[in-house]
């Protein structure tokens, strides 16, 4: 889950400060607060879907290629969202929004498909019957993700497009010369 190369210096020793309250102290807060629960669930689903599809693709691909390829696709989407949430930043937030929308569409399409025509999927996928085998979490997760990543406050600023340098700048090490008014 650790992304290693990022500016991880702030991560140490800021356990005392409340997450998300200080815009400069935390890394954009996509994985703190409620996001921590979300990112944990996404990480677990990534591992689960990935190992499941690896096993199925390597041992029984001929039985149900469509179902197993779908499982692999789901695993990729989960992995992408997990990374986006961990990295944080405006760009990751937008990509995360798109990925959550894709995930939601996938759950709805595959779920409806399996309900209407069960024979199309001889073996179940994570998204079969709207994720019923997984307590409907595959359906709940993308909705929660969309709500979490929408975050109206951030979005207002993001629509302008001018704050991209300030908000996503991974390299602003304290001093920000462009911000200081000159003359």
């Amino acid at each position: 889950m650790a992304d290693g190369s990022g500016p991880a210096t702030e991560d140490r020793g800021d356990h005392g400060s409340s997450p998300g309250s200080t815009p400069t102290g935390t890394r954009h807060g996509l994985s703190s607060g409620p996001g921590r629960l979300l990112v944990t669930l996404y990480a677990i689903f990534t591992v689960g879907a990935a190992s499941r599809s690896l096993y199925q693709l390597s041992t029984r691909f001929d039985e149900a290629p469509l179902a197993y390829l779908l499982s692999a696709g789901a695993a990729l989407v989960y992995a992408f969202i997990t990374v986006a949430l961990v990295r944080g930043g405006e760009l990751a937030r937008r990509f995360g929004l798109v990925a959550c929308a894709v995930e939601l569409a996938g759950v709805l399409v595959v779920g409806t498909w399996t309900v209407l025509d069960g024979a199309a999927f001889p073996d179940s996928t994570v998204w079969s019957t709207y994720g019923m085998g997984y307590l409907f979490l595959p359906l709940i997760l993308p909705v929660t993700g969309l709500i979490w990543l929408r975050r109206p406050g951030v979005d207002d600023a993001g629509n302008e497009g001018v704050d991209d340098g300030g908000d996503t700048g991974d390299d602003d090490g304290g001093a920000d010369p462009e911000r200081t008014p000159r003359g």
Binding site: H15, S18, P19, G33, P34, G35, R36, L37, T40, L41
Partner: peptide, 21 residues
Amino acid sequence: LVGLVALGERSRWGSATVAAG
């Protein structure tokens, strides 16, 4: 694993994460 995650999130959401796990 969720116990470790909750170490870095000293709020109600850490508890929610452990509960989910």
